[in-house]
Design a protein around this nucleic acid. Structure first.
Lengths: 96, 96
DNA sequence: CGTATATTTCGATGTAAGGCTAAATATCAA
DNA sequence: TTGATATTTAGCCTTACATCGAAATATACG
């Protein structure tokens, strides 16, 4: 079980949603991600922290690089939290 | 179609999620809602504005009172935006 | 070891967000 | 119209957040 708190907070920022959209197409290193953004690596690193705290992404060191990838399993938690707000059945096999 | 931007931002605040949770159980006036919160009516009014901007709630004046109610139809948009982030099939959307 | 590369952490800064009180608006009722 | 009630808007303060550049950490390689 996951905090909806951290998930919604993480999704609230456009740059973070863009990071997720990028990782949706495949894992990438911090450097590769940075190429797609006009903001500094330091700022991006902060966003990785927020996304990891929400368990939306995972990281793995590969030599000097750090590879980030999307954690799709948390989708259920997010969908659940969302459905709960509207008091709709939780998706155990399909939403609504 | 609705901005996922405003929806996620609206959901990011715990007080706003609590307001939604309350309205889920039925429409309420601003005063009735305020009884359940330790913050001022003025602050709550600000939150109503954010929730209305995201089209998550609707308001209707009834005499001196203003009645707020949940807008469940926007659930589709929210679920859609969420699913899109994870590139998963959209729910078929049987919103009650 | 010493240097280069990749990424994060630190410290500072501007802006947005949430909170408050007080004032303004809207409706009702006498 | 005057006063009471319900709610929002305005102005201000404080905290949280996104951002940056610089310093710190981790790994690779000569």
């Amino acid at each position: 079980m996951v905090q909806s708190e951290s998930i919604f907070r993480a999704l609230a920022d456009p740059n973070r949603r863009r990071i997720l959209a990028l990782l949706k197409r495949g894992s990438r290193t911090a450097g590769e991600i940075a190429e797609e953004f006009p903001i500094s690596m330091a700022s991006l690193s902060h966003h990785y922290g927020v996304l990891k705290a929400a368990d939306l992404i995972r990281s793995e060191r590969r030599g000097q690089r750090i590879v980030y990838s999307l954690n799709t399993t948390v989708f259920e938690d997010a969908a659940s939290a969302l459905a709960d707000i509207f008091r709709i059945e939780k998706p155990d096999g399909g939403v609504s």
